[in-house]
Amino acid sequence: MDKSMKMRAQLKGNFTEVKVLMSHPMETGRRRNDADELVPAHFVQLLTATLNGKPVLQAQWGTGIAKNPYLTFRLKGAKLGDVVEVTWHDNLGETATHSIAVTQA
């Protein structure tokens, strides 16, 4: 499975905008494939973001987040070069993590 993540963290005046695009099928468990078989549920359940290792955001997700999840959030007090890290865990025990430094917008 492709577990890649694209991330950008940009300082925009008094906040830092973090954009994240994750690769994940986000299967609801209700979809049928071409052979009319139910595709098992496979979705991200938990996501955390840290700033220089300090937790700043935690999310619990259901099956209603769209395929290849997209997320924007905003941090206060981050400086250029600070490190933002995002980690997800899904219902099958898979996980992915990605970090990036804050840059000027």
Binding site: V56, A59, F73, K76, G77
Partner: peptide, 8 residues
């Protein structure tokens, strides 16, 4: 979504 002190 649950926000810590560092997030808007």
């Amino acid at each position: 979504f649950m926000f810590g002190d560092g997030a808007e």
